[in-house]
């Protein structure tokens, strides 16, 4: 184990995969310069500019070229810079990458990774702060993963690169500099297996991505015995573990940074209710963003941010209903 930042863990994992497999390469804006969060720092020196490719600001072609390259046998890592810019490449992701294997009757596969850091970060305002994971979990064909710790950033990236499915990896922008212990030899983390972050009998709490450390802190400080699951991947997701826990605690809280309305928390609650039955829960709540764009001013952004205090309050509410 070595202590390092989220960005460094991801950087090392990509480097190790590129050493292991010469068919792995990455393309996106400013990658030769290290990427905007340093997650590609130094890689062009080691692997050259044909495998670490700095591209024009051409999101459709970054995404579409990644697909073409996958169809010809390579394993591209497509960097979207931030999730918001994926919106400029939605046809390529949703109607091309997610569909080719199916439409062509299994003849071709889009074995590639799409990295799209997401969420609030340093007052980036409405067009650079969105959490769009629910959009992509809705699309058949895609695997969607959202790490919340440095170790998972590395392990999920390795799994994504080795996966034959197209994998969307949504790194939380706010956690790039967060530190954690990372195994020296990173193993792939299987999709659909949650990290059981804390054990307790009073309340099941489900979260992922940027709110993982927030929920962990709240669980420690709230005085509520929380059973906390960091989902790590959202499609597939660890329904079995969450449903089993909720059946035991009878109470469920889902916390995410994304807008609550039609957020992935709605899916989690619905599946848990289907699993435990209509009378199986005594308390349930979703804690997410209001249905409003993310504002600029720190005073306004903080008003919308999921804080440990807000999560702890929700934990107490749901545990005592």
């Amino acid at each position: 184990m070595t202590r390092m930042t989220f960005a460094e863990a991801a950087r090392r994992a990509l480097a190790a995969e590129m050493r292991r497999d010469p068919l792995v390469w990455a393309l996106g804006e400013d990658l030769v310069q290290g990427g905007i969060f340093g997650q590609y720092r130094g890689l062009a020196d080691e692997f050259g500019t044909e495998r670490i490719v700095s591209t024009p600001i051409s999101e459709s072609t970054i995404m579409g070229a990644g697909l073409g390259a996958a169809l010809c046998g390579t394993r591209p890592v497509i960097e979207m810079r931030i999730a918001d810019f994926t919106l400029c490449a939605m046809d390529e992701l949703v109607s091309q990458i997610a569909k080719v294997r199916y439409m062509f009757g299994g003849q071709g596969r889009a074995s590639l990774v799409v990295r799209m850091p997401q969420g609030m970060w340093r007052n980036s305002a409405a067009q650079h702060s969105q959490c769009l994971e629910a959009w992509l979990t809705h699309i058949p064909g895609l695997v969607v993963a959202a790490p919340g710790t440095p170790a998972d950033a590395a392990g999920l990236l390795v799994a994504a690169i080795r996966s034959d499915d197209p994998v969307v990896l949504m790194e939380p922008k706010n956690l790039w500099t967060a530190e954690g212990d990372v195994p020296d030899d990173v193993a792939p983390i299987p999709f659909g297996v949650a990290r059981h972050a804390a054990s307790g009998d009073a309340l099941t709490v489900v979260t992922w991505s940027a709110t993982v450390p927030v929920v962990e802190q709240a669980a420690r400080e709230s005085g509520v015995a929380c059973d906390v699951f960091d989902l790590r991947s959202l499609w597939p997701w660890d329904e079995a573990a969450v449903i089993a826990s909720a059946r035991r605690t009878g109470r469920l809280l889902v916390v995410h940074e994304a807008v609550t309305v039609s957020g992935f928390g709605a899916e989690v609650v619905a599946r848990v209710v289907e699993g435990v039955g209509p009378g199986g829960l005594r308390g349930v709540e979703r804690l997410g963003a209001p249905r409003a764009p993310v504002p600029f001013s720190p005073a306004l952004e903080d008003a919308m941010r999921i804080s440990p205090a807000r999560v702890a309050a929700a934990m107490k509410r749901v545990a005592t209903t």
Binding site: G64, G66, M103
Partner: peptide, 27 residues
Amino acid sequence: MLGANGVVGAGIPIACGAAQAIRLTKE
């Protein structure tokens, strides 16, 4: 034949990437 396409123009980026892969693998 890497596929017809129901979206006008969508084959262009795909062709670019196919060519990049061909170069990378020295085909």
